[in-house]
């Protein structure tokens, strides 16, 4: 038995993101069961667990795409208050567009595959109310550049791009409005190992330059290890263990986490 940890005493800032006691079922499948999670400003929270453990469902809740049956969600931001799950559809949309960015494993979920790449990014800014063409083009270019997208392909539609480049377009779209929270669902799964390393490197760089709070979901421990400060391990819709990333990898406590870590070694 290890010791029970105290509440924070030195760090006095509140978590940027707090999710409390969320549950969600699809028919007879309980995808997420009474899960709580938090992320401090500038922190990268990694969520790991085998396929079907409820990671994507939880992330969709954080993006307000999915409203759970129980539980609450708060973001500690100016002009944002209360349980976000109770917002109406319009307020939810606006909040997502301006404060939250998301990158999905499947680029079809995040992009219009036949529109230009810069247009995909600019669309995000349009939703938030920007109308000047020059500003749109400029902001889209900057976001694509920060995502290390090759600027000679600005007008290429995602459908003509490689998987790695499609993820960079999604990333540019996600960060174009400098969101307070960046959600990443298996952002490198399915990419070649070498391409995966480059995309991870871009993410790491962005995190360091901009100190964006991130939640990254992956079944791949290597990805989580590269990026996360803190790790939450999920199994069958429940959290089995959380801890500092190095502790989870070097001294996992739960039998399931030990099995995951050893399988990887």
């Amino acid at each position: 038995m290890t010791l029970t940890l105290d509440a924070p005493r030195i760090v006095e800032t509140r978590p940027l993101l707090e999710v409390h006691g969320v549950s969600k079922s699809y028919g007879t499948v309980q995808a997420v069961r009474n899960v709580s999670a938090h992320a401090y400003p500038g922190e990268v929270l990694g969520i790991v667990g085998e396929s079907g453990s409820g990671k994507s469902t939880l992330l969709r809740m954080m993006n307000l795409e999915e409203i759970p049956e129980t539980g609450s969600y708060t973001l500690d931001l100016p002009d944002v208050s209360g349980n976000l799950f109770e917002l109406d559809r319009f307020a939810r949309r606006m909040l997502c567009a301006t404060k939250i960015g998301i990158v999905y494993q499947n680029p079809h979920l995040g992009l219009l595959m036949k529109h230009s790449s810069s247009g995909n990014v600019a669309e995000r800014l349009l939703v938030a109310g920007e109308r000047s063409f020059a500003t749109l083009r400029q902001a889209a270019t900057e976001a694509l550049e920060a995502s290390e997208f090759p600027l000679d392909r600005l007008d290429a539609p995602p459908i003509e791009l490689s998987g790695g480049m499609q993820q960079r377009v999604q990333l540019a779209k996600a960060i174009a409005l400098e969101p307070a929270l960046l959600l990443l669902d298996e952002p490198t799964t399915g990419l070649d190992v070498s391409v995966q390393a480059l995309v991870l490197d871009t993410l790491k760089r962005l995190q360091q330059d901009r100190q964006i709070t991130m939640v990254i979901v992956s079944h791949d421990l290597g990805v989580i290890r590269t990026l996360a400060d803190r790790v939450m391990v999920m199994r069958r819709g429940e959290v089995v263990e959380t801890g500092l990333a190095d502790q989870i990898f070097q001294d996992p406590q739960h039998p399931y986490t030990q099995q995951l870590v050893h399988a990887k070694l």
Partner: peptide, 9 residues
């Protein structure tokens, strides 16, 4: 027993 965030800090 310190919280993870305190240790990280």
């Amino acid at each position: 027993r310190a919280a993870d965030v305190d240790v990280a800090h």
